[in-house]
Design a protein around this nucleic acid. Structure first.
Length: 228
DNA sequence: CGGTCGATACACT
DNA sequence: GTGTATCGACCGT
């Protein structure tokens, strides 16, 4: 068996359509973001299937691929056991646990090793409402089912057990929208990231992307400032 | 609808 | 030991 070629391209032997999708995701996260908006992520769990149309994402950059360091990124201080999937190939999931109770999911982007990705901040449940509702009994309306990063992860049934798994293959599926070529970036807004304080949380870094006017997009809240 | 606050356990220093 | 890429309950408007 020959050693694998030195190439940042898709894995050998991958089905062409999946390889093409992975190639698209292997671009800079800030360029991938508009492609992911409107895309549908499906998770087929043992208890059923839920599909979410992604309406809001945030780019997090790796320690070496950006013009500026990104202290808001989990990869800012290098690889750890938790963030290892971020250093892997594009299209895989990085799921982390935070605040003692919430899971949040990212799609890894960029060439392998750059450790950047897109946090899935909000979406609209487009299939599997009953299961999503069962997973999130506290949601008051359909639009609340995945309107927030932890809500989205919960609705899709994602946990840290899914971190590192390929979002482009079973039991997952990722379908990009058929954007008219002329309107790829139409209806997309950008702004500062949510909940990131200090550098990377200001509008120097407008790395939050959402579908303009979409009702599932979370309202902007400035990073919490603690009293002196 | 908007602001405040407590809960919770894990990763990392 | 410290801080967290958040949520939901509660309260006032």
């Amino acid at each position: 068996m020959r050693p694998s070629p030195i190439s940042a391209g898709p894995a050998r032997g991958e089905e062409p359509s999946r390889a093409a999708l992975r190639e698209l995701l292997s671009a800079d996260a800030r360029h991938v973001a508009p492609l992911l908006l409107g895309a549908v992520l499906t998770h087929q769990g043992r208890d059923g299937s839920v599909s979410v149309r992604i309406t809001e994402v945030e780019a997090y950059l790796g320690p070496h691929d950006s013009l500026y360091p990104d202290p808001g990124s989990h990869t800012f201080r290098g690889a750890t056991a938790r963030n290892a999937p971020m250093f892997g190939p594009a299209g895989h999931l990085y799921v982390y646990f935070t605040y003692g109770m919430h899971h949040c999911a990212n799609i890894v982007c960029g060439p392998e090793g750059t450790a950047s990705g897109l946090l899935l901040r909000a979406g609209e449940v487009v299939a599997g409402h009953e299961l999503a509702r069962a997973r999130r009994p506290t949601s008051k309306s359909a639009k609340d089912l995945a309107s927030g990063p932890a809500r989205l992860a919960k609705a899709l049934g994602l946990t840290t057990a899914d971190s590192g798994r390929d979002a482009l293959g079973a039991p997952f599926r990722l379908e990009l929208p058929q954007h008219p070529v002329s309107g790829i970036s139409a209806g997309i807004s950008t702004g500062p990231r949510v909940g990131v304080s200090g550098a990377g949380g200001t509008d120097e870094y407008p790395w939050r992307f959402w579908l303009s006017g979409d009702p599932t997009v979370s309202r902007y809240k400035a990073a919490k400032v603690r009293p002196a």
